[in-house]
């Protein structure tokens, strides 16, 4: 077969900047931390070659993974990440579904404009969008200030530096990821079905719940995955909005790496995160395949 540069160049590029780094992460995850530059003792040296690697594979350093199981810190971080990501996703859903529904039911010529309005903030700096919430949520921030000046509260509400702030941050940052797939399925819906259900005696709410909602499940699942997956590995949101005691796997990775300079442990955590992320991605892939064959 003829070798085409249009295939070869991106192929080599992706191999060098995606595949090789990923193998290095895996290799590092099985290495031990050391006082050196770089700060680890590699489990596999490139020069050793396959026979030695195979020999070593039998007596791999699983220290990082054992530590992960023993130190409750890592397990806790993982569980708390999943919990926060799930709560954030739920809040996104609560705001995104009515929004997507309303856009889909808006006059045809307004829909593109409304959709653009939803997507535009997603383009502005992630960092700035999180920062905007600091100004709102802080004890001396605008929300507490407003509530206090209306005399609704005496002491500032604890809105900042806790899980609530992180959940709001996730909801705010990932809203478009939920709105877009939901809108895509809602837009294709045949609204006369809902009308038919109402004609048959269902209330507006029942008609939505029994006819429209089941038809949007696919978009719903895609949206949930698109929000949950990146939220799980989030670092900036817990770092800026969460308290110092916030445990999220991305934050733990960051501090293992930059703080403790335990590169192998950071790599091991990265691998664990990757394996967890693979599950929803495989689900997503299966859904896509089913749609293509359908």
């Amino acid at each position: 077969m003829k070798i085409r540069p249009v295939i070869l160049i991106p192929f080599l590029w992706l191999a060098l900047f995606f595949l090789v780094p990923l193998t290095i992460v895996v290799r590092l995850a099985f290495s031990e931390s050391a006082q050196a530059r770089p700060p680890y003792r590699p489990a596999f040296a490139w020069a050793e070659g396959w026979p030695v690697w195979l020999e070593k594979a039998k007596s791999l350093s699983l220290g990082n993974f054992e530590a992960m199981l023993e130190e409750t810190l890592y397990i806790d971080a993982l569980l708390s990440s999943a919990g926060l990501a799930a709560n954030g996703t739920a809040l996104v859903l609560l705001i995104a579904y009515p929004l997507a529904y309303a856009i889909a039911r808006a006059p045809r010529d307004r829909r593109v404009l409304l959709l653009t309005l939803v997507v535009v903030p997603f383009w502005t700096s992630f960092l700035i969008r999180i920062y905007a919430w600091i100004a709102l949520l802080k004890p001396e921030g605008l929300i507490n200030y407003a509530l206090k000046s209306f005399g609704l509260i005496d002491a500032p509400l604890p809105l900042f530096g806790n899980h609530l702030a992180i959940v709001i941050g996730i909801a705010y940052s990932y809203l478009p990821f939920m709105v877009l797939p939901l809108y895509a399925t809602l837009e294709k819906l045949d609204w006369s079905l809902e009308e038919a259900a109402r004609d048959l005696g269902a209330t507006r709410l029942r008609a939505f719940w029994r006819v429209t909602f089941p038809q949007t499940l696919r978009g719903l699942i895609v949206g949930i995955l698109l929000v949950f997956v990146p939220a799980l590995g989030e670092f900036i949101i817990p770092d800026l909005l969460g308290g110092s005691d916030t445990l999220m796997i991305g934050k733990v990775m960051w501090s293992e790496f930059f703080g403790n300079r335990d590169w192998p442990m950071a790599a091991a955590l990265a691998m664990l995160l990757l394996c967890l992320l693979a599950i929803p991605l495989v689900i997503l892939r299966m859904l896509e395949d089913r749609r293509e064959t359908a």
Binding site: F17, P21, L22, I24, V25, V229, P230, L232, G233, E234, F235, G250, M253, W254, F257, A266, A267, A270, L273, L274, L277, L281
Partner: peptide, 11 residues
Amino acid sequence: VLPEIMTGLSL
């Protein structure tokens, strides 16, 4: 879909 933190670490 890779978290940025993983892309950063691996690179």
